[in-house]
Amino acid sequence: MSVTSLHHSPSLARFTSLAVLTVGLLVGMSPLATAADTAPGTISVSGHGTQQATADKVTLSTTVHAEEPTAREALEAHGAAVKALISAAKAQGLTLQDIITEDLWLQPVYSNDGDDSRISGYEASQPISLNVWNITKAAQVIEAIMESADNAVRLDGLEFDLKNHAPLLKRARAEAFQDARTKAEQYAELSGHTLGDILTVNDYTEIGSRTGNLPTETYAGKSTVTLTPHKITDKVTADISYKLK
């Protein structure tokens, strides 16, 4: 009878099978859900490190320019001024590798005569950067190049930096790592756990430099240039994930 009854009631049989399967899945899943709920998990923190050092390098940004009635004369005057600047820089111990020339610009100079505008001359100009590796000689180099070609050299600014950032960044990383670990240990303790192994580490660096703008007239004639040493700041942020135990 039971066989016949089952044979003639397929919908009931399917319902019974689904019910058994559902109960089985729930029973099988319950231990996994309990384990996930009680697992210690992970913790992610950010640590920060900041280190400073006194600048030991300065880059001078200059522009050499010349204005003359004709384009040829402007180029010739400009070329003479560049040669004078390079000679003065080399006399202060710089090499050709320390002197970086950029694009040379030649453009007409216009003057207005009533409603008319006409070309009155030509101006040649060129940016030139100079790397001074002995920062104690930077003031002497500035004076020398500014006096090398009368008013043809303009000092646009200077940038203080380090010859090598590696030691500073190394100390900043160590500080950032210790900062992250201290935070992680505290949060682990507050949550009733202890700190486990490191899972991931990502760091971000911020390499610093200091810039300054100095007016050309400061270095005219035989004036004395005084440069105050600047501090360079490098920063590291470390994002670290730990296991919790």
Results as ranks from 00 to 15, higher is better:
Ser5Trp: 08
Thr62Asn: 04
Ala88Phe: 08
Thr59Cys: 01
Ala33Lys: 06
Pro69Thr: 01
Ala80Pro: 05
Arg72Trp: 04
Pro31Lys: 00
Thr70Pro: 02
Leu32Thr: 12
Ser44Lys: 13
Ala71Thr: 06
Thr63Val: 12
Ser17Ile: 15
Ser17Lys: 12
Ala71Gln: 15
Ala84Ser: 15
Gly47Ala: 04
Val23Met: 00
Ser9Leu: 07
Thr59Ile: 03
Gln51Pro: 03
Thr62Trp: 06
Ser17Gln: 11
Met29Pro: 04
Leu21Arg: 10
Ile43His: 09
Ala80Ser: 14
Ser61Pro: 00
Gly79Asn: 02
Ala13Met: 15
Ser44Arg: 14
Thr50His: 01
Gln92Trp: 04
Thr59Glu: 03
Arg72Asp: 15
Ile43Ser: 08
Lys90Gly: 06
His78Lys: 03
Thr22Ser: 13
Val82Ser: 01
Ser11Lys: 00
Asp56Tyr: 00
Ser11Phe: 01
Lys83Val: 05
Gly49Arg: 03
Ala66Ile: 01
Ala71Tyr: 08
Glu76Trp: 05
Ala53Arg: 13
Val23Gly: 00
Ala81Cys: 08
Ala13Ile: 14
Gln52Lys: 12
Arg14Ser: 09
Ala74Gln: 09
Thr59Lys: 03
Ala19Lys: 06
His78Phe: 10
Ala55Leu: 00
Ala19Met: 14
Glu76Arg: 10
Lys57Leu: 15
Ala55Pro: 01
Leu26Ile: 03
Val27Trp: 02
Ala55Thr: 00
Gln92Ser: 10
Val23Cys: 00
Ala13Leu: 15
Ala89Asp: 00
Ala74Cys: 07
Leu75Asn: 10
Ser2Ile: 08
Leu18Ser: 08
Thr63Lys: 04
Phe15Asn: 07
Pro10Lys: 12
Thr22His: 01
Val27Asn: 06
Met1His: 11
Ser11Arg: 00
Ser17Asn: 13
Gly49Gln: 02
Gly24Ser: 13
His65Ser: 14
Gly24Asn: 04
Leu75Val: 14
Leu60Gly: 07
Glu68Ser: 11
Ala71Glu: 15
Met1Trp: 08
Lys83Pro: 04
Ala80Arg: 15
Lys83Ile: 08
Glu76Leu: 09
Val64Asp: 07
Leu25Ile: 14
Leu85Thr: 01
Ile86His: 08
Ser11Leu: 02
Ala88Thr: 05
Thr34Pro: 03
Arg72Lys: 12
Ala35Glu: 13
Gly41Cys: 05
Glu68Gln: 15
Lys57Arg: 15
Thr22Lys: 01
Val3Ala: 11
Gly49Ile: 02
Met1Gly: 14
Ala81Glu: 03
Thr62Gln: 06
Leu21Ala: 14
Leu21Asn: 07
Ile43Glu: 02
Ala39His: 09
Ala53Asp: 05
Ala55His: 03
